[in-house]
Amino acid sequence: MAEMVKKLKTTKVQAAVSAHCSAGDVLCDVCTEIKHKAVKSCLVCLNSYCEEHLQQHENLFKGKSHKLIEATGRLQEIICPRHDRLLDIYCRTDQLCVCYLCTIDEHKSHDTVSAAAERTDKQTILDDTKRKYHQRIEQIEKELKELRETVMSHKRSALAAVNDTERIFTHMILSIERRRSEVTQHIRDQERLQ
């Protein structure tokens, strides 16, 4: 009987969750029965909070430096598995994000910068590359347009040449036919005179 009640409660909770949240929403880690949609995630507590629990969190940790970000279900991906700290430093030597304590241990003599600074650098490089590709695409499109215009010009020239050739040869054929007819007539006239 207890097992059936437990299954019924689980089914109710799951139905309530699906009624309040859509697919892809991050759920509040503090809500117990009905999970509400999380609006913020705390990088210190490693929890995501709905509006109600966020207010409780802010009241509880007022004046303490708890960094809040937009709700994310990827909290574990941005936290160091060894030190449970935010991966906020980028190790250029190993090309990966590490936490502050990692820079003291295994990344001690490595070239490190803040993750935000590295992101800005990478974004600048990406924007520059994107701009260069965009310019190259525009250049290729311009060249393609010029090539199409050249092809059309050649087609028009070829058509004009064909038309001129047809006209000239038609005129020559008519002229030859006329001359042949004149010669034939002249020969017949000479034949009659003799």
Rank of each mutant, 00 (worst) to 15 (best):
L27V: 06
K62C: 09
H171S: 14
Q185E: 08
T10N: 08
L87K: 00
A15F: 12
R148T: 08
E70Q: 13
V26S: 00
N59Q: 11
Q55K: 10
T11L: 12
I125A: 15
T150K: 10
V183Y: 08
Q56W: 04
A71N: 01
H83G: 01
V26F: 02
K9H: 14
L159I: 02
E52D: 13
I89E: 02
M4D: 10
L159R: 08
S157P: 00
L101W: 02
F61D: 13
C45E: 03
R74D: 10
E106A: 08
R74V: 01
E70F: 04
R92L: 10
L86K: 07
C50S: 03
E177D: 07
A38M: 01
K37A: 10
I79M: 10
T32W: 13
V17H: 08
T124P: 05
C31W: 05
A19C: 07
T124G: 15
L86Q: 05
C42Y: 09
R167N: 13
C80L: 00
T11K: 06
K145G: 06
K108R: 11
H36C: 13
S48M: 00
C99M: 00
L75M: 09
K130R: 13
E51Y: 07
H20S: 13
A15K: 09
H107R: 07
E52H: 11
R167A: 14
C42V: 07
I187M: 11
V30I: 12
H107W: 07
D128S: 14
L144T: 15
E58V: 03
C97W: 00
P81Y: 03
R74M: 06
S109N: 14
I78F: 01
T112L: 05
R119F: 10
K155R: 14
A160D: 09
L75I: 09
I34Y: 09
A15I: 09
C28R: 04
E3I: 05
C50D: 03
D189T: 02
A160T: 15
C50W: 02
T124E: 14
D105Q: 15
C80P: 05
D25Y: 00
I137Y: 04
Y100I: 04
K12W: 06
V30K: 15
L43A: 06
L101F: 04
S157M: 04
D88H: 02
E51S: 13
E33Y: 11
I79C: 05
L8H: 12
Q185K: 14
I125S: 10
R92T: 00
T72M: 02
H57N: 05
R85H: 13
R188H: 08
C97K: 01
I34N: 15
L101V: 09
H20T: 15
Q194C: 11
N163T: 08
Q139H: 04
K6D: 12
L75N: 03
L87Q: 00
K155V: 07
A15V: 09
I89P: 02
A158E: 03
A115I: 11
Q190K: 13
D127Q: 12
T10P: 06
E182I: 11
S157H: 02
E146R: 11
Q123A: 12
F61Y: 15
A117M: 14
R82N: 13
